[in-house]
Simulated assay, not measured.
Amino acid sequence: MLGRSANGIFWLFRYLERAENTARLVDAGFRMALTRDSRDAREEWRSVVTTLGMQEDFEEACGTEYQGAQVFNFVLRDKGNPASVLAMIEAARTNARMVRTVITREVWEAVNESWMLLKEILGRTVNETRLGDVLDTIRRQSTQVRGAMEGTMLRNDIYNFARLGTFIERADNTARILDVKYYVLLPSLSPVGSSLDNVQWENVLRSVAGERAYRWLNAGQMDPKGIAEFLIHDERFPRSLAFCYGKLRSNLDYLARDYGTTMDAQTIQRECQDRLLATGIEAVIEQGLHEFIGDFLACNNRLAQQIQRDYRFID
């Protein structure tokens, strides 16, 4: 297929995944802020903005106070924020229009309906009373698009580029949440093991939709090292780094079969995956979680760029 079409599919699903991940992170931050005093609540909102990589833009637009309503309106709908959920949904719809001839009617309709609905509900200020419903709608619309793709798309190169965009973005998001929460939310060891500590780690899991799965596997025990291992290495959990890289491998292999040639992206993907799986959680902690995640993010970004070079994406 044309590089321009591959680029449109890849970024369509990256934007949708990013919008959903942003909504999950805001929801976790809101729940955490409700349990804390005003000063600590501001620090929780700062953590959300830092995780999303919006700290500089937010402080330039809104200052350094990090009030809840100010933060979630900036993240969700601020017209001056090019990384807001509203901007991402609009970008996803633009990409869907560009590749309209290579996606099914059901996928196009799901994307277009999501854009129309979210444009309406994010067109006015979001308050705390509406926030839960708004976040639920963002997650639900993303799920509907993904369901339309899984239920109607041929398993061809178009489908594989969509999956590559999804799992590149998902791996990046999980890694950033684990990194920033570990170091920003818990800057010292003093609260470890306390009820507050357990709530904080519960919200780390909630922000990646992993709370129920982790509790089921670990009898409800909240252990920071165990949570880190779960989000990095557990190939059963669909938002873990290991799961994402397993799917990236299979989709790149399918593309290599379809196009009759192995690309450099496959080599990079295998290097990243082999390093990920070969480094046990004890080695991760010894190396330093922050350093390990930094290396992973660099490799993930290198893979994304190589995919775009290999398949001649056009901006």
Rank of each mutant, 00 (worst) to 15 (best):
R206W: 03
A213K: 03
H233G: 00
D223M: 13
R239E: 15
S240V: 05
L248F: 01
S207Q: 01
A213S: 06
R206C: 10
K225T: 14
L248R: 09
A219L: 15
E202T: 05
V199W: 08
V208C: 02
R215H: 12
R206D: 08
N198I: 00
L205I: 05
A209N: 11
Y214K: 01
P224A: 02
R206A: 03
Q221R: 15
Y214M: 04
P224C: 04
Q200G: 08
D234Y: 09
Y245E: 12
G226P: 05
V204K: 00
R236E: 07
L241V: 15
Y214A: 03
N218R: 15
Q221S: 14
S207L: 09
V204I: 02
E202K: 07
Q221G: 12
Q200W: 00
A242S: 11
R215N: 09
Y214R: 05
E202I: 02
L231W: 08
R249D: 15
R215V: 04
W216E: 15
G210C: 02
R206G: 02
A228T: 00
S207D: 05
R249G: 11
R212A: 08
N218T: 05
E202A: 06
W201Y: 00
A228I: 03
K247R: 15
G220D: 11
N218K: 15
M222N: 11
G226Y: 07
R239S: 12
F230N: 00
R206F: 03
Y245M: 11
Y245G: 08
P224Y: 02
R239Y: 15
R236W: 00
R212T: 10
F243P: 06
K225A: 13
K247L: 13
K225Y: 09
D234F: 04
G220S: 10
H233T: 00
N203G: 01
D223Y: 00
F243D: 04
Q221F: 15
R236T: 08
F230H: 02
R215T: 01
N218Q: 07
F243K: 10
A209K: 12
R249Y: 11
N218A: 06
P238D: 13
N203W: 00
V204H: 03
Y214I: 01
G220T: 12
R239H: 12
R206V: 03
G226N: 09
I232T: 12
G246Y: 06
A228W: 05
L231R: 07
Q200Y: 06
